[in-house]
């Protein structure tokens, strides 16, 4: 991400830049696709013995327009969020923080997942993608005779 100050000597922008540099210096071996932190939509990934669960915090979307793909162990979530700004001379925007535009996020999955057993549910603006692990990879108890 290219840093550009809107106004030189803007204290808050400077603090923002310092914070970003600070985090970058902590992450000495960043992921090849960047850390992705701070992008839209935020993602949480959880892992259990049976599945990998991905939670995508993408509110206000039409589920039909969200594109979820798995290819070669890489999960891609993409889509577009359009915020309609009232086209009215009388309207003034005081705060505009919500993301608008096209987005794309990529998550690399573990090797033992089953690409044919994927479920995706969208509820309350939260997309939950569940990817099952392959049967053979699940832990088994071996009986001792």
């Amino acid at each position: 991400m290219v840093y550009r100050a809107v106004f030189p000597r803007d204290v808050f922008n400077e603090l923002n830049r310092l914070q970003r540099e600070f985090w970058q210096s902590l992450d000495t071996n960043p992921n090849i696709r960047g850390s992705g932190r701070g992008g839209f939509p935020p993602i949480n990934v959880g892992s259990s013995e049976r599945a990998v669960d991905i939670y995508v915090f993408a509110p206000g979307l039409d589920p039909a327009t969200i594109d979820v793909q798995i290819e070669k162990g890489v999960l891609t979530i993409s889509g577009e969020r359009n915020i309609v700004v009232p086209n009215n001379e009388q309207a003034t925007t005081h705060i505009a923080e919500r993301f608008t535009g096209r987005f794309r996020r990529v998550v690399s999955l573990p090797d033992d997942i089953d690409p044919s057993a994927v479920s995706a549910k969208y509820r309350d603006g939260l997309l939950h993608i569940g990817v099952a692990r392959r049967e053979a990879a699940q832990p088994r108890r071996i009986a001792v005779q």
Partner: peptide, 9 residues
């Protein structure tokens, strides 16, 4: 039994 491996939220 789920453990978080990456959390932005």
């Amino acid at each position: 039994g789920m453990s978080a491996i990456h959390a932005e939220v």
